[in-house]
């Protein structure tokens, strides 16, 4: 059974031009030990989805307009703030994009780890510090004693992200949400961090939601993937299926724009045009204006995500064969 199941999640924002839905009817499920990739361009709503799952969006201006977020069957959207606080960090851990700014600069690594433990576990200081040391070892940090006493600014970006990961897994959560965890890091460090996350989810059986725009990472590490465009899921599939035979033209475009070695190309294909702003989306498919395969139906009605009985779903009136 899925640990985390998001059903028809809709998130709106109050803007100067009135309320706008930035995430519309997003559904997905995440199993224990699985890694699910959530892919899309900047502004497609993938981070907002993650923040909504954690209930970390400021409301207002944000407003969760509908849907359910089930963690082991409990709808997080119905919990009180106090109950939700016990979920955050304990049942769901979160890793952010910016390791340089995501740790508190005025506290040592050790005390921030200890806090993550003691917020949810009734352990004494001494025991918590021992656990913090063990966590650092788990995320591949050596010289633990010294590291615990250091401040974030004394660590490299890669080390800081390891500390963030240690904090996220401190209470052995059921689910870890990693929002662009490697985007801000050097390529070599990226691979290390991804290998670490991959190993941890297998060892600990955590469901891992990887939010990224890097399809390479998805191909290598994820079991399945969902592609978001302009606030909606346009395609979902097991990774192999999606990369072998994308059905949605947007997914196809994304895959085509990945540079490949050994293929002589004058110019990398790109998807023309820009993502329409929320609120400026017309009646039909939000991708229609950028799509070479658009037909009349595309501008009339939003295509549903289907077929429901298949593990490969796509929202398109004129899908690729």
């Amino acid at each position: 059974m899925s640990r985390l199941s998001v059903e028809e999640l809709t998130v709106g924002f109050n803007t100067d031009h009135g309320p706008v839905d930035v995430v519309e009817g997003v559904s997905f499920a995440l199993d224990s030990g699985a890694m699910l990739g959530l892919v899309g361009e900047s502004g497609c709503g993938k981070s907002v989805t993650a923040m909504a799952v954690m209930r970390l969006l400021a409301t207002p201006p944000a407003r969760i307009a509908g849907g359910r977020v089930l963690l082991d069957g409990v709808d997080l959207l119905r919990l009180s703030e106090a109950q939700m606080r016990r979920v955050r960090g304990d049942r769901i851990g979160m890793i952010f994009q910016e390791p340089m700014t995501s740790l508190n600069p005025t506290y040592t690594v050790g005390s921030q780890l200890v806090e993550a433990i003691r917020l949810h576990r009734p352990v004494g200081r001494r025991e918590a510090w021992a656990q913090a040391g063990a966590l650092l070892e788990q995320v591949g940090i050596g010289a633990v004693r010294r590291r615990l006493g250091q401040y974030p600014h004394e660590l490299s970006g890669g080390l800081r992200q390891r500390v963030m990961i240690a904090m996220a897994i401190a209470c052995s959560p059921a689910v870890v949400i990693a929002d662009e965890p490697t985007t801000a890091l050097d390529v070599t460090i990226q691979a290390q961090i991804m290998e670490l996350l991959d190993a941890l989810r297998r060892e600990k059986g955590m469901g891992l939601l990887l939010i990224t725009h890097d399809l390479g990472l998805v191909a290598r590490y994820c079991d399945s993937v969902i592609v978001m465009y302009a606030g909606r899921i346009v395609e979902r599939a097991p990774v192999k299926t999606l990369f072998a035979a994308p059905r949605h033209p947007y997914t196809h475009g994304l895959l085509a724009s990945i540079p490949r070695l050994g293929r002589q190309q004058e110019r990398l294909p790109s998807i023309r045009g820009m993502v329409p702003s929320p609120g400026l989306r017309g009646a039909g498919c939000a991708f229609a204006d950028r799509c070479d395969r658009a037909v009349a139906a595309c501008r009339a009605e939003v295509p549903p995500l289907g077929p429901a009985d298949s593990d490969h779903g796509f929202a398109c009136w004129n899908p690729l064969p």
Binding site: R85, R86, R88, G89, M94, F96, A116, H120, M164, M167
Partner: peptide, 14 residues
């Protein structure tokens, strides 16, 4: 508004 405040909230701090 800083990122580390968001981190603290994600950890479950009140």
């Amino acid at each position: 508004r800083r990122d580390y405040i968001r981190t603290a909230r994600a950890k479950g701090a009140g």
